[in-house]
Design a protein around this nucleic acid. Structure first.
Lengths: 345, 345
DNA sequence: CTGAAAGCGCTTACAG
DNA sequence: CTGAAAGCGCTTACAG
């Protein structure tokens, strides 16, 4: 006995039709507001009344099978418990709901296998479209989706060589600006801690950092740039900070290239004796509680999450109806300047 | 033309059957691994091969319609962007996936109307069960679900007078212990900031606070207890703190009864001249980044999120197959003691 | 203005 | 060992 059958039997169109001695066709038309004016007021009224009294609710699964439309969007992020993605998820949920869509979600944890599995699960469930924060090596998955004409919007990340819709940040510009800001504030040597990843958006942050250094003729050898594996977490961040600070010429400024790195890094720095910003100035990516509560409030790169989430849904909907249109949006970040980047010296 | 039709036509059982000149029955049996040993190896092999070569993927919507099982769970929280719920969501996602379930989610924002709407949307989609963090005035919604025998587990909150499954914290005990801890550490007058809500779990936090005061013969008049409306946010928290601190006998200890209140409260206190813990000792509910990074790391009530999330799914699954069993779990919180509650004086 | 019928893509009892 | 047929709950072209 399938689990579903234990639930109370739901009333169907047929139940209403039988009760009134009319056809299901008629009931369907009335309840969907179709054929208005072509159905007598009397039958319309009695169908509506009976439907209400029986607490009729249409079975969306049956509707979906017939119409090949589920009004469901699949959202794949790295990790729904990462505040960056949970905030985005909330915005996407609200915008989806306005358009009568429901969101199913999954966390890929940066694994191409998990990502692929989620894509398949979502497609098997006939989602009307997918919003995807792609992982490394996801190129083939994306190409497959495009080949099958699945409405798709990449979010946060994209592959420049793949012609997919996307909503992203101009990460190069954001990093360039953040690091330039440190330089303008008398920081002489700037370290960066980022993720050791081939993902374009992370490469762009690195490029922005390096270009800002080069343009200002600051040291930019590999020793001030620490790339850590995404899955190593806190210890890796701490080790990177140690290596930077114990170097021959330790940096007097630091650029944390993600919210997680910033959060972990700042907790570690909090345990050290050096003072921010005078011993070490800091800028980081993304808004976190850490940015507010650290003794020296952090200067950070603020992404326009609301606009990005909203835009992702709008592009996805557009794409469902006009699959030929390709939309690629790079948003500007805002640099929110606080104490952590402003040396007094 | 419905959006779904723009996608590439998917291959169906019938396509495989036609190509091989066999019945869809046979194809269905083979691909579902049923009737093992009763189907010739030869046909089994050729069906599997053709299915693979055609990239066949079963249409879950059709399967669901037939079997009345969607392998989908509806998760309704207050706000998916609240870290408490996004962490829970991640745990639920993982545990659901292990059991071959997908999660659709929605945020009720504490509104009974939104909650009701989400419940209806999820039921229309024939979810196999619902995990719900109920809002105020949700009693009738829950009763309706029970009446219809919808597998249901309440999470984080419940109504003691309603006989539903739930997974929750022993909030009375947690609050009692947190406040007692302050008293043991020489705090003489303790204020509380909580939500002005009839929800049982919040009432329990208040009761735990008041009982700890009473038991220790500390002042427990209404003036040290500030209840704020959930939707007022930061300003309300700040105002409550001001009122407490500007009172005739200002408290030298504070109990923040939720993660949001703690986060907002601590940011405000950070701007004041008083020192934590010596001028004002603090304990709060839930783990937040604020707890770690505030200059005086916060003592907090830690909820066993993993166990709670995992348990919610397990109870839900059990409930699908044995609807008669009622499981109600109250978990013990752990009090994580840090600097903010330990006065030096 | 209304209804009989086909069909969406599956599963499964039944028959042979 | 295999297939024809019914049916899950809808929608909708067609006929009258």
């Amino acid at each position: 006995l399938p689990a579903g059958l234990r639930m109370k039997k739901k009333v169907s169109l047929k139940d209403i039709a039988k009760k009134l001695g009319v056809s299901t066709t008629l009931v369907s038309y009335v309840l969907n507001g179709k054929m208005k004016g072509r159905i007598s007021e009397e039958t319309t009224a009695k169908i509506l009344k009976t439907a209400a009294s029986l607490n009729y609710r249409p079975n969306q699964i049956a509707k979906s099978l017939k119409t090949s439309k589920t009004n469901t969007i699949g959202l794949i992020v790295s990790d729904i418990s990462n505040p960056f993605f949970s905030q985005l998820a909330r915005i996407i949920e609200d915008e989806a709901e306005k358009n009568n869509y429901t969101v199913i979600f999954g966390s890929s944890d940066g694994s191409p296998e998990r990502s692929q599995k989620l894509i398949h699960i979502f497609l098997d469930r006939q989602v009307d479209g997918i919003i995807l924060a792609p992982v490394e090596q996801a190129e083939s998955q994306i190409k497959e989706l495009l080949k099958n004409k699945v409405p798709l919007v990449l979010i946060d990340r994209y592959f420049p060589e793949i012609e997919a819709n996307y909503v992203a940040l101009d990460n190069y510009q954001a990093a360039f600006r953040a690091v330039s800001h440190l330089i303008e504030n008398k920081v002489k040597c700037i370290g960066m801690i980022g993720y050791d990843s081939s993902l374009f958006h992370l490469q762009e942050r690195k490029r922005g950092y390096l270009d800002a250094l080069k343009k200002n003729k600051l040291p930019h050898d590999i020793s001030t740039l620490k790339m850590i594996r995404h899955n190593l977490g806190r210890e890796a961040v701490e080790q990177a900070i140690d290596e930077l600070l114990n170097a021959e010429n330790p940096p007097d400024g630091l650029f944390f290239a993600s919210n997680m790195i910033a959060s972990q890094g700042i907790k570690y720095i909090n345990t050290l004796s050096l003072r921010v910003p005078d011993d070490l100035a800091i800028v980081c990516f993304d808004e976190t509680e850490a940015a507010d509560l650290f003794y020296s409030p952090l200067t950070y790169v603020k992404q326009p999450l609301f606009e990005m989430g909203q835009s992702a849904i709008r592009i996805l909907l557009k794409c469902m109806f006009s699959p030929k249109i390709r939309t690629q949006q790079n948003f500007e970040a805002e640099l929110v300047i606080r104490q952590s980047s402003l040396k007094k010296g």
